[in-house]
Write a protein that binds this DNA or RNA. Structure first.
Length: 206
DNA sequence: TCGTAGATCGACT
DNA sequence: GTCGATCTACGAT
């Protein structure tokens, strides 16, 4: 079980140390656990790309709460994405879980992700990861740091610091408006489950 | 293997 | 009414 104090820091500090951790979710169907290989930090009010940028709403309520809870939101009409809420109560920073490797419950993950051709694709991508774990609206606000919780975050095997890679999010400058892009994405080099980098280009519909 | 269009609905303006 | 922290199918190469 990850200590809540570990998460009660800015998402930017927590994110790289979260790589390699294992998120386990148990339902009536069974248990699926994913070892995180790619995450992205969201700096709340300082991040134009964050749900919390325009202030507190019923939707992002959980982000403003205490650390160690799960923020699950619905997007694009069909997908769920999951974040680990960080920092102290009242501060809306979080870490988006972008990709991971299924290390337990692969058969159940296969049922939930029928379109995946290989096990490495079970959780390769934010929406795929939540799908493989079986996370949904019901898990929004779930406590990750309480013993016996159906949704839990656990320390994984030690990660070689040399394999941790970072990347700036294109077009987003850091606090202070100095024009410097901050490295808010973190992933483990060489992991086949890391999603391919694609610049964020919102598509316009007709 | 790569690139693009379409799907689909809740939150916010 | 508009847009989105995306995924998948499908056509082209």
């Amino acid at each position: 079980m990850v200590e809540r104090s570990f998460l009660a820091r800015p998402g930017l500090a927590v994110a790289p140390e979260l790589l390699g951790s294992v998120l386990r979710h148990t339902t009536s169907e069974g248990t699926v656990a994913v070892r995180l290989t790619e995450v992205e930090a969201y700096q709340g009010a300082e991040d134009p790309g964050s749900h919390a940028f325009r202030g507190r709403t019923p939707r992002n309520e959980v982000m403003f709460g205490p650390a160690g809870h799960l923020y699950v939101y619905f997007t694009y009409g069909m997908h769920f994405c999951a974040n680990v809420v960080c920092d102290v109560d009242g501060t809306a920073t979080a870490v988006l879980l972008r990709a991971g490797e299924v290390v337990e419950g692969a058969s159940l993950a296969a049922v939930r992700r029928p379109s995946a051709r290989a096990p490495r694709e079970y959780a390769r991508g934010p929406a795929r990861l939540t799908s493989a774990l079986g996370l949904g609206r019901a898990e929004n606000g779930a406590d990750l740091c309480s013993p016996g919780s159906a949704t839990a975050l656990e320390p994984g095997p030690p990660v070689d610091a040399g394999r941790v890679r970072t990347g700036p999010r294109v077009g987003v400058s850091g606090p202070g408006g100095d024009g410097v892009a901050f490295p808010w994405r973190f992933w483990l080099d060489g992991e086949p489950t890391v999603s391919p980098y694609r610049p964020h280009v919102p598509k316009r519909r007709k």
